[in-house]
């Protein structure tokens, strides 16, 4: 039983990161029905920003308390990544908004490749860890081993997701986003600044991914290709939860965290992991194509 709860905790840590990235896929899809395949690589860039800002703060800054350094690092990463995503939208996606859907998807893949290879060429392929901004403390509660970092990952993710949910449901910007996703032909006629709202959506999605990226870099190594697999898993999370649906993306993220952890527990090897995840996706697309929390779309003729 203890082992079981230990595995649940392991899954929560991974699931939090997947959920944070899945949100970006879901929000962008919700608003302009584009699957932003560069999102995994935007996440990768965010970990590198956190790496450089964190290292610089550790090296030069005044003896700041760990928590402040952590928050500064995360905010810097969020800010820069949001800026990057807005630029990508402005220069790579916006000119194609009226083009066939597939052009935009291919462009997104291209942007992803560009980010990967740009990072590889400028920073190099060596895996790295974020500097120990917050010293690790390991302890056990009720026989379950954990660490302060793990709890930070789980709680910070939960808080950020709650904030995002509130923004989307309770603010004017959120209302405008939901309105555009509902009907992108009529809403601009009502005076909603469509371009600005789309930019804000990209910025929000990317900064949430940057929260995930900063947290991820504390416990896992980062490298230029890390965005590929994580991006795929987050994408599956978003689709399983119901792409375009924010709570669905969170649910999907945690679900895939469970899949990743419990595959090697139940099946003989973690090699089956992708098989399980993609099978889940396939089954869902057959029986519930709009995802767990999504609503079926009816086309009007």
């Amino acid at each position: 039983m203890q082992t079981f709860f230990q595995q649940i905790l392991n899954a929560l840590q991974l699931g939090s990161v997947y959920a944070l990235i899945a949100l970006g896929y879901s929000m962008v899809y919700g608003i302009i029905t584009l699957i932003n395949f560069a999102h995994g690589d935007i996440f990768m860039v965010s970990t590198y920003v956190a790496f450089f800002v964190g290292s610089a703060l550790m090296a030069y800054a005044f003896k700041l308390p760990g928590l402040i350094t952590f928050l500064l690092t995360m905010l810097a990463s969020m800010f820069f990544t949001a800026f990057l995503a807005v630029m990508i939208e402005r220069f790579a996606y916006r000119p194609l908004r009226k083009a066939p859907r597939v052009s935009a998807v291919i462009t997104a893949l291209g942007v992803g490749l560009f980010l990967e290879n740009f990072t590889l060429a400028t920073i190099g392929p060596h895996p790295r860890f974020l500097p120990p901004i917050i010293p690790v403390h390991r302890f056990t509660i009720f026989g379950i081993a954990t660490s302060n970092i793990q709890l930070i990952i789980i709680f910070v993710s939960a808080i950020v997701m709650f904030l995002l949910d509130t923004i989307v449901r309770r603010t004017m910007v959120g209302m405008a986003m939901r309105a555009i996703s509902w009907d992108k032909f009529t809403v601009p006629l009502m005076g909603v600044p469509m371009d600005r709202i789309i930019s804000i959506t990209f910025a929000l999605g990317a900064s949430i991914a940057a929260v995930g990226g900063t947290l991820y870099g504390f416990v896992y190594t980062i490298d230029p290709y890390m965005g590929i697999r994580i991006g795929w898993w987050a994408f599956i999370s978003a689709v399983i939860g119901g792409i375009g649906n924010i709570r669905g993306a969170m649910l999907g993220g945690y679900l895939l965290g469970l899949v990743e952890i419990f595959t090697p527990v139940i099946l003989p090897s973690s090699t089956y992991r992708d098989f399980v995840a993609f099978s889940l996706l396939l089954l869902l697309l057959i029986f519930r194509p709009y995802g767990l929390l999504g609503r079926p779309v009816t086309m009007k003729v």
């Binding site: 595995q7 392991n10 896992y220 952890i261 419990f262 090697p264 090897s269 973690s270 090699t271």
Partner: peptide, 11 residues
């Protein structure tokens, strides 16, 4: 066992 590129071995 695990697969090349895995980063989480907690399970």
């Amino acid at each position: 066992t695990y697969t090349t590129g895995d980063k989480d071995f907690s399970a």
